[in-house]
Design a protein around this nucleic acid. Structure first.
Length: 273
DNA sequence: CGGTAGACCTGACCGC
DNA sequence: TGCGGTCAGGTCTACC
């Protein structure tokens, strides 16, 4: 499901509801997520209070008592759904259920199981294998100074470079397509052929696209909904993603789709050079 | 080393 | 109705 805006939306929704509540029970219905849940998973979490919920890259971090951190990644198809009363039955692929006090339930739902949940601690978070090597956040002020150099030393297609979480985090397939369209840059252009001026525009476009998507509550494709059960709305504002053959919003040329390292790339062959 | 193809997994959808 | 093919918002690994 989710790129940065969707994860950010989920985080904000969960923070509002869950911060200050205590985990009183954890029920694991399936342990073999992308990374198998550790043996002590339930035992470590039970009885701990959630102090804060934050995000790093596409990871959700629940900061708990005693410096423990619950790390969650939603993969492609994961979602976290809140319930204020017990549903009559759990859905297929509701793999982990949390119960809180004051009463609330949270289900981790993930049909494809590309998502994961892991335990960490505040002290070791930086050195956690999931986080070492992650690039800067797109809204990091320091990124301005390093973004062009980072493109300049890579000769892979610019689209795969901005999707590389080692160089900049949070940009996935949808927002990569959208940001490149907004910058008039062809997705196949080698990154080192992007000029300094274009790089500045591209970074600004990435930030603007992500920011507006967050404002719209993320994008709802297929069955993804926010934890509240509401859908996001940004999908209605896609300029290129999923619009193969439809007219470009600026020049009316039909939108093209190509395959880049296994992913669909949508772009306007007239506006993007 | 940098870059790319394939693997991981399930479900939805389309054409026959 | 059923079957096979294709596609899906992300990472990780194996290989050139």
């Amino acid at each position: 499901m989710p790129e940065l805006p969707e994860v950010e939306t989920v985080c904000r929704g969960l923070a509002k509801t869950l911060e200050g509540r205590k985990i009183v029970n954890v029920t694991v219905r399936r342990r073999d997520l992308r990374v198998p849940l550790p043996k002590n998973f339930e035992q470590v979490l039970r009885g701990r209070k959630i102090h804060r919920i934050t995000r790093r890259a596409k990871y959700i971090l629940m900061h708990l008592d005693g410096g423990h951190v619950l790390i969650i990644h939603l993969g492609m198809s994961g979602s976290l759904v809140l319930y204020d009363k017990k549903p009559t039955h759990w859905r297929k692929h509701d793999h982990v259920i949390f119960e809180f006090s004051p009463f609330m339930l949270l289900a981790f739902h993930d049909p494809r199981r590309f998502g994961l949940m892991a335990l960490g601690t505040e002290k070791t978070l930086e050195k956690n294998k999931l986080f070492t090597g992650l690039g800067p956040e797109p809204f990091d002020k320091k990124l301005g100074a390093v973004f062009y150099p980072l493109l300049h030393i890579a000769k892979a297609p610019v689209k795969s470079v901005i999707m590389d979480q080692q160089r900049i985090v949070g940009v996935g397939n949808i927002y990569a397509c959208e940001a490149l369209f907004a910058s008039h840059i062809h997705p196949k252009r080698p990154a080192n052929k992007v000029t300094a001026k274009e790089a500045a525009l591209l970074l600004a476009s990435i930030r603007k696209t992500l920011k507006e998507a967050i404002k719209s509550g993320g994008s709802t494709l297929r069955d993804y909904v926010r934890s509240s059960g509401d859908a996001g709305y940004f999908q209605h504002r896609f300029c290129v993603y999923g619009r193969k053959g439809e007219p470009c919003v600026t020049c009316k040329t039909p939108i093209s789709v190509i395959r880049q390292s296994g992913r669909s790339t949508f772009f306007c062959p007239h506006c993007q050079k």
